[in-house]
Amino acid sequence: MALVELRNVSKIYQLGGEEIRALDDVSLDIESGEFISIIGPSGSGKSTLMHILGCLDSPSKGTICLDGVMIQDASARQLAAIRNRKIGFVFQFFNLLPKLNVTQNVELPMIYSGIGSAERKKRALAALESVDLVNRAKHRPSQLSGGQQQRVAIARALVNDPKIIFADEPTGNLDSHTGDAILTLFRRLSQSGRTIVLVTHDPEIAAVTPRRIEIRDGKIAVKVDLTLAGLAGGRRNPDGAEPPKPA
């Protein structure tokens, strides 16, 4: 069974009596350990898809099964718990809390899952270690560069050991060099067995993932799966590593 199973999911907004289908009957499976990108121009519905996959929003129709649990009818409280334990988010604008230092930012998800402070410290440092930022543990987000901030955000996404990580235009606010570093980091995480969903409008960035899904007008337009074709990697594959096989 796939980690995420989307079946005939629609999201319909009512705008002034007009019905807008942000997602229109989308079905999709994501296997555990996959590195997948969702591409689409703005307004295509890719963000809506990510929000529904990420349990930030509920679909109007259809069913979602995440890690064996049906969540389309879950309450806000249940969704919060799922986001907390099973999902990690990385955003375009980093979305760190400016008043907390780096460690505290990374600890935030663990605070909501009720983990004791000693354990929190330990795990936060371990997560920072994995993004090479232990030496910045006491800094404020405002004292860090964009790339560093995004790495802190990735550490925060990792810290509760989630089943799946969503990255929404993670390089959108970074210069291309820093962006590459972030993508490399994602690739490394993918190689260590993480399931990662990369949402972007940029086909070049999407090219780093073996599997790509293009969304247009709320529908899945094109599916490319290089893992099946054996053509994994792409031109933006700096270290030329083989992508992992789906679990």
Binding site: A76, R83, Y112
Partner: peptide, 16 residues
Amino acid sequence: IREIGICKAVGATGLS
């Protein structure tokens, strides 16, 4: 509001 959104995204419930 944004901060609250971040907290909710990482798992804060309405109650918290």
